[in-house]
């Protein structure tokens, strides 16, 4: 009897697991919640802890060829109402050190975020990671606060095409491109990435913003200008995911102010096949992934849907 119960429970669990499991750009994920790049992403031990907290996949901090110290503090500022402003300055240990860090990654689904100041940088970084146990890459073409990197590349469709083609020609692993709100229409950038062979698009990155202390009159971030994330960017991100997913053939990963399962559902209705979480961790800690998965599962049950793919882009028909 006990054995049967165990078996049944195991089976139920597997069925549950299947309801949230997705295949995105050839990457099999047990659920659609991913850790957004820039958050928590430098140590294998933390990755293991995130995996035990039910994360679907982890996008690392953006890794450059050489180590980067980033900006002086304040690098992150909390704003009222669940938003953050950050200008970390792409601080990262560099390709050498980070590839050693995750060299014995046992089972954690890691996507390495890549950042470069020219398209020559990317093959050098990929060379360090391509033989490791990782799912794929996400190219950061949209960091809004570092000169010559990120958005300066991502604002130029020709550069985007060149970088994506370069990366694709140096790896067989899936390549995701992260786009953001810059000076050029995000749709043009997403289309360029799609046409150059990207396997998925992540939208959106943080949005250029700033905050000034009224007592001293001094901008709070040491870099003065940074990127806005959290609840205040969500409606913009929803719009971007909606428009991009209507206009490109590859799947879209939604990112920007997802704090609850309701937010996750909204992103999927808009056309996201998976979602990335970041700012919410400041409020919910590592438990955010599990909480959102549970809410998604209950929503699917209530709507009589068998799996998540049924939900993706449903709002497009209206």
């Amino acid at each position: 009897m006990l054995e049967w119960c165990k078996l049944l429970r195991g089976k139920r669990q597997r069925e549950h697991d299947r309801t949230l499991s997705i295949n995105i750009a050839g990457m099999e994920l047990r659920n659609p919640t991913m850790l957004a790049s820039g958050f928590l992403g430098i140590s294998q031990a933390i990755f293991n802890r995130l995996y035990n907290a039910d994360v679907g996949a982890i996008v690392s901090k953006s890794i450059s060829c050489e180590p980067m110290e980033g900006y002086r503090n304040p690098t992150a500022v909390c704003l009222e109402g669940g938003s953050y402003l950050n200008a970390v300055g792409l601080a990262n240990p560099g390709a050498d050190a980070f590839s050693s860090e995750i060299a014995s990654n046992p089972y954690v689904p890691i996507i390495v975020s890549l950042v470069g100041s020219s398209h020559d940088d990317f093959p050098k970084i990929i060379n360090k990671f391509d033989d490791l146990n990782i799912l794929g890459y996400e190219i950061n073409l949209s960091c809004p606060h570092v000169a010559k990197m990120g958005m300066e590349v991502g604002d130029d469709p020709d550069m985007v095409t060149k970088v994506v083609k370069t990366v694709k020609s140096h790896t067989l692993k899936p390549v995701v491109v992260k786009v953001g709100i810059g000076n050029v229409d995000i749709l043009d950038i997403a289309r360029a990435a799609n046409d150059a062979g990207a396997n998925a698009i992540t939208a959106i990155n943080t949005i250029r913003a700033m905050t000034i202390d009224i007592e001293s009159g001094i901008p709070v971030l040491s870099n003065k200008i940074g990127g806005l994330s959290g609840k205040s960017v969500k409606p913009i991100a929803i719009r971007c995911v909606y428009e991009i997913s209507k206009n490109v053939s590859v799947p879209v990963i939604g990112c920007g102010g997802i704090f609850s399962w309701e937010d996750a559902v909204e992103f999927m209705l808009a056309g996201a096949s998976a979602i990335q979480l970041g700012s919410v961790i400041g409020y919910e800690g590592f438990g955010a992934f599990q909480k959102i998965c549970l809410g998604l599962k209950r929503y699917l049950e209530r709507k009589g849907m068998k799996n998540l793919t049924e939900l993706v882009g449903l709002a497009h028909k209206y």
């Binding site: 958050f39 928590l40 690098t75 992150a76 961790i281 400041g282």
Partner: peptide
Amino acid sequence: MKCGIGICASCCIEDKLVCK
């Protein structure tokens, strides 16, 4: 330490965040 609120992990020691 950078964020102080458990989102950046620059203060990590193994799987622990010193700030949180």
